[in-house]
Design a protein around this nucleic acid. Structure first.
Lengths: 131, 131
DNA sequence: GCAAAGTAATACCATATGGTTTTATATTAA
DNA sequence: TTAATATAAAACCATATGGTATTACTTTGC
């Protein structure tokens, strides 16, 4: 129940902020540079950057009279980690289905390569349910 | 710029809704069952389920007089896909850094296993920038 | 048919959110 | 020092959001 996890999800909920992240992935930018691509006020962009900063996705690096906004991995990493549980969840669903198929055709000759193999591999991953 | 992608991000932004997803990962549930775990009104839970449904994370399955709410992978999948771009982004950053290290120590004897190997493997993944 | 259980739908309220405008502050360059 | 650039901060507004309470609609079981 880390606090910044919630901040990260909130930050990603706005399409403008996601666009900002994509822009910053092409290099550090000042607020002014971002404003020129969004037809918004500086103040508005600044607010979005504050939200992104609170979500640990952007850090500010002063350089002279400019303040460069830089992408930071922490926030997105924690979101990806939370969502990872569900990816594993679907994988296990697939595995359960496959096992049912296996036990159904228990008397049939074994196949060399199949979906079952993939399911077995997948289900061997560790599962950590988030809080 | 798919519409349901935005709905999915919005749906995940609320902590209660993420909790609901975790509950549903343990099995389909009616609104009544969810209410008993959240100390909220039925109407409130219903609203959250509507948002989750719009984000393609939950589907409703009527059974008798009950309506079971079931987890659906679409929404989370698209969110994970969007975030995947940034995972690759960080990987490439790592790779660039590693290449710099490599060219720095070009005259040094090669190592059998190293960070560079990992970076090379990672950077071989395909990169798809979302819209 | 009728009562009970479960859900749906509507109206409504308080607050959070995204945005603008305005004013103030800090740094560079002449 | 002064003009110009870039950001920061505060006040303010319209709307979205999360929540409640209330009322009405289905389905089961007697």
């Amino acid at each position: 129940m880390t606090n910044h996890e919630q901040y990260a999800f909130k930050a990603l909920a706005d399409p403008t902020r996601r666009q900002i992240l994509l822009h910053l992935s092409q290099g550090d930018k000042t607020i002014g540079e971002l404003v020129s691509e969004f037809s918004m006020t500086r103040a508005a962009v600044k607010k979005h950057l504050d939200v992104l900063s609170r979500g640990q996705m952007v850090t500010v690096h002063p350089r002279g009279r400019e303040r460069l906004n830089r992408l930071q991995p922490n926030g997105i990493k924690s979101v990806v980690q939370w969502l990872g549980f569900f990816d594993q969840f679907w994988d296990e669903k697939l595995n359960a289905l496959t096992q049912a198929i296996e036990s159904d055709s228990a008397t049939a000759p074994p196949r060399t390569t199949s979906v079952t193999d993939k399911a077995r591999r997948i289900s061997s991953r560790k599962k950590n349910k988030p809080c």
